[in-house]
Amino acid sequence: TYTFKVDNKDQAKKAAKWAKKLGLSFQIEKHGDTFKITVQ
Rank of each mutant, 00 (worst) to 15 (best):
L24Q: 02
L22Q: 08
D33V: 07
K20T: 09
D7I: 09
T34P: 01
A12E: 01
K9R: 12
F4Y: 05
K5S: 15
K17Y: 10
Y2I: 09
F4C: 15
D7L: 11
Y2T: 04
T3R: 05
Q27F: 13
L24R: 03
E29A: 07
Q27L: 11
K17T: 08
D10N: 13
K5W: 15
E29N: 05
Q11L: 10
H31M: 14
K14Y: 09
F4D: 01
F26N: 01
H31F: 12
Q27A: 10
W18Y: 05
K9I: 14
A15Y: 15
F35L: 04
T1P: 08
N8M: 03
A19L: 15
E29W: 07
K36Y: 15
D10R: 14
K14R: 13
Q40C: 14
I28G: 01
W18Q: 03
V39R: 00
K36R: 12
Q11E: 10
T3C: 15
F26R: 00
G32P: 02
T34S: 13
F4S: 01
V6Y: 06
H31L: 13
A16R: 12
T34C: 14
K5M: 15
K17N: 09
T1F: 11
G23I: 02
A15R: 04
D10F: 14
K13H: 08
T3V: 12
H31G: 04
T38Y: 05
K30S: 07
E29S: 09
Q27V: 13
I28M: 08
Q40G: 12
I37D: 00
K20H: 07
K30Q: 12
Q40F: 15
T3Y: 09
S25H: 10
L22A: 08
S25G: 06
T38A: 04
K30E: 07
L22E: 04
Y2W: 14
A16N: 03
N8Y: 03
A12C: 15
I37Y: 02
Q27D: 06
H31N: 11
T3K: 04
K14W: 11
G32N: 07
K5F: 15
G32D: 06
A16I: 14
N8S: 12
W18L: 05
D33L: 08
K13R: 13
K17Q: 12
I37N: 00
A12D: 00
K36H: 13
I37K: 00
L22V: 06
E29V: 11
I37G: 00
K14Q: 09
I28K: 03
V39F: 08
K30F: 06
I37M: 04
F35N: 01
N8I: 03
T34L: 10
T38W: 05
V39C: 05
F35T: 02
K17M: 12
K14H: 07
Q40M: 13
W18G: 02
